[in-house]
Amino acid sequence: MSKADTSKNNAFLIDMTKCTGCRGCQVACKQWNQLEAEETEFFSGEGYQNPPAMSEYTFTRIKFRDYQKNGQNEFAFYKEMCMHCNEPACASVCPVGAFEKTAEGPVIYKAERCIGCRFCMIACPFGVPKYEWSKGLPLVKKCTGCYSRIKEGLQPACATACAMAIGYGPRDEMIKLAEQRLARYPDRYINKVYGKEEAGGTSVIYLTSLPFDELGFKAVTLRPLPGYTWQALRLVPGVFLSVGGGLSAFSWITHRRDRLKNEKQAELAEQGSVPSKEEQE
């Protein structure tokens, strides 16, 4: 895949140590995107977590962790959303190119193209695209990166709602900021900028104080995912030509052999000595 310069993309810098789990972002997202509320009961997870997962109605969600570690309480929050990958798996597998990584950063979805095959859902390493399961002719739903706001010079709705934890700006600056924070507060953070390299780099990057797996971050490969399929797919023309060509050549040879054999047989038949056709087991 073509390697576009992603350093000038806009990116989110989400500092989980600053997230208070207030879920203003979750509500702001629903408001901007006019998403229906989900019907929930009690809590669907630790702490006050709701709804149970991202869905066609929920593009971003705060995952709660409420547990004890070495006798100390841990009450932690993790914002799930589309990672707006630099090289999005969803875009690469979509047969109709319904996903597009924009120059501004967001990976957007062109609903009018989608045929609803759900390959994007299988492909996304972060489990982001969701489906309109309730509909007869469903489409895919996911965080839009608030592309409509970005284009107007606004920040994404969730970033606007958040007091402290969500930063938004050019990706290289966000990474620099993240690394500065790691250097300045080494005790506060796990020494890692999640999203800098994950899945080949994403436009959503995280800092946390707890191990990433404890917060429920997905373990993903560092290689851009489209490469995994492309390494096979790029062979397609070659395979087609070599199989086609090979078989053609083969058949030409066998046909020629047959023809020669037939001619020979015909000749022999004329001479009256037809060999019996034995099973060649």
Binding site: S92, V93, C94, P95, V96, G97, C114, G116, T229, L233
Partner: peptide, 15 residues
């Protein structure tokens, strides 16, 4: 929209 496959090509897609 099955025919979209023939309209919007994405050669990177195995599908």
């Amino acid at each position: 929209r099955g025919w979209h496959v023939f309209r919007y090509w994405n050669v990177h897609s195995p599908m």
